[in-house]
Structures are given as C-alpha cells and as structure tokens.
C-alpha cells in the first residue's frame, strides 16, 4: 500500500518534470544570438546612410527611410531627424 503510494508520487513527479522539460513554450525557444552589425542601404539609390544627414531620409536622393519625427529617446535623439 505504502509502496504503491510512493510509486504514484514518484511517477507523478517524473511525469511533471518530463513535461516541464519537453513541452513547447508559447513564443517558442529563445535561440541565443551573437551581437552583429548591419546596414540598411538606400533602396532607391543604393547609397550608404550618412550620419550628417540624419536617419529619416537618404542624404543623396532624399528617399524617406522613416516617415516619422524622431524625439529624444534612449540613443536616438531629435537631432537625428533628416
């Protein structure tokens, strides 16, 4: 009787642990990613993005990268508007 109960408890625990370890989590697994560097060239004229002319439009052909007004955020500031 006591043995049966112990078995039940340990099989419950084993099952719970197994389920916790193997079940899929909402949003999926988080795959660790390395830091990386990238760049968005101007899709209109192919030029790189120049700092002096701001982030919102292309310094060379005027293509609008982002049709918004940047405010003072964390690293991006008002001055970064084109």
């Amino acid at each position: 009787m006591a043995e049966e109960k112990d078995n039940k408890l340990s099989s419950y625990l084993e099952r719970l642990k197994q389920q916790a370890a193997t079940q899929q989590h909402y949003g999926g697994d988080i795959t660790p990613e390395e830091a990386k560097m990238d760049m968005r060239d101007c899709p209109a004229c192919g030029a790189g993005r120049a700092f002096e002319k701001g982030l919102t439009s292309c310094a060379y052909c005027g293509f609008v990268f982002m049709d918004i007004k940047l405010t003072d955020g964390v690293n991006i500031k008002k001055e970064n508007n084109s």
Binding site: R40, L55, F65, M66, D67, I68, L70, G73, V74, N75, I76
Partner: peptide
C-alpha cells in the same frame, strides 16, 4: 509602423 527596428525598440522600452 513605418520605422526601423532600433526606433521601434526604443519606443518599446520607453
């Protein structure tokens, strides 16, 4: 939203 990811991430933080 018509922005790039770094801009979105700042808004998402602030």
């Amino acid at each position: 939203l018509g922005v790039e990811v770094p801009v979105w991430q700042e808004a998402n933080l602030l």
